[in-house]
């Protein structure tokens, strides 16, 4: 870790890990596609601070702008079957 950056304290790491675990278990257990996508949003929110914590901010910007596109592409097929 480079100098001039505060080390992320343990509580943020534990909370983002808890967010990832909650989102993963919820995504696997749900059966409705919309509920699965909402749970996937929780998981993506948990992954994002780990990328920023490493100092890879350009990667964080690119991933944060590309990740909703994946959800939008999935929603294109999601709206057809559901009345």
């Amino acid at each position: 870790m480079q100098e001039g950056s505060i080390a992320v304290n343990e509580m943020v790491t534990v909370s983002c890990g808890a967010l990832i675990v909650i989102g993963t278990i919820l995504t696997i257990k749900e059966s409705d596609p919309f509920r699965k996508l909402i749970s996937l949003g929780i998981m993506i929110g948990g992954v994002m601070p780990f990328i920023v914590d490493r100092g890879l901010l350009d990667v964080a910007i690119a991933v944060a702008l590309i990740a909703p596109l994946s959800t939008l592409f999935t929603l294109m097929i999601c709206g057809r079957g559901e009345p």
């Binding site: 950056s5 943020v12 994002m48 920023v52």
Partner: peptide, 14 residues
């Protein structure tokens, strides 16, 4: 959390 965890000018953009 993203804006506050790393004091860097590009953090606001992220």
């Amino acid at each position: 959390v993203i804006a506050l965890v790393l004091p860097h000018p590009l953090g606001i953009v992220a």
